[in-house]
Design a protein around this nucleic acid. Structure first.
Lengths: 153, 153
DNA sequence: TGCGTATTACTAATATGTTAGTAATATATT
DNA sequence: AATATATTACTAACATATTAGTAATACGCA
């Protein structure tokens, strides 16, 4: 009878759930020499086209200092390029290169196939329900939660 | 036409859901100078008492090389100690110190209160449903999923 | 026009994640 | 007993996470 406290630890459970899913895809990304975060960025670029780093951070759920390094390495790998924005010298646009367009075109179908294999093995019902709940939870982020009072020490 | 799961990104959504929750607790841990992972370890030690590092890794969902550093820092902070196991010189037991017992006794009630504040703000229904789904998903980890065939390149 | 403030992407420092591999010890098999 | 294999915790190397802070630029307003 597993009665570990970890089973009532929602952040930990969500982390394990995520690992359960992502571990099914890691071999694909590894095969093409990409980390999970690098692929997250490329995938958003496929969907969005040109995009500024701060939105990339938002969509990928990656903080700015991490994104700086990820974009640096993707640039060195020849998988992204940068374009200046006229009228604002602070801002910049990130976009795919022909190489990464081709790479994404190879990877995306494999991801889709792997999703289908997951559905075959685990069924669609739970996965669908999980989407509903998780998106519901993410919506709630805007509903402010009172913070517990912290003792001085 | 409803969005097929292959066109969405479940690991990313789970990551965002987790961040939504953990951000409600981070101020508490920061107040006591702990990282999230350090607290995960201490919390398991409260529950389990003496425990070997490999089980700590399993229960905390932290890989062994990360755990090595976490335990090293917790040791330097005086929050864990180590005990040899008679009959097997490879193995070791990790346990709390009086200091970390006292620290955990201060933190645990605050975590519980914060959970209550979250439920006040967001309702219990969604949180309960999430537990159900996520635990269900984690169970499925044992059901083997076929791996998509990777092209040579 | 000048000045305070906001925004954007960045750096710095430390902690953790991920993969591969290793030294020491224990166990199974011959 | 001797050898091969398994286990445990560890190191190494690199990528990413987290927090704090900065330089350059843009903007709001007196």
């Amino acid at each position: 009878m597993d009665q570990h406290i970890s089973q009532r630890n929602l952040p930990l459970l969500l982390s394990k759930a995520r690992e359960t899913i992502i571990s099914q895809f890691r071999p694909i990304l590894k095969h093409f020499g990409l980390t999970e975060q690098q692929w997250r960025v490329l995938r958003i670029l496929v969907e969005e086209g040109e995009i500024e780093p701060r939105y990339l951070c938002e969509y990928c759920d990656i903080l700015s200092p991490s994104m700086t390094g990820i974009l640096k390495r993707l640039g060195e790998m020849g998988l992204i390029s940068r374009k200046a924005i006229a009228g604002d010298k602070r801002r910049v646009l990130i976009l795919l290169t022909p190489e990464s367009e081709a790479l994404a075109a190879k990877i995306l179908p494999l991801i889709k196939q792997q999703y289908q294999l997951i559905e075959q093995a685990w069924g669609t019902e739970l996965i669908t329900q999980l989407y509903v709940d998780v998106e519901h939870l993410i919506q709630l982020k805007t509903v402010k939660v009172q913070q517990v009072e912290l003792p001085s020490h």
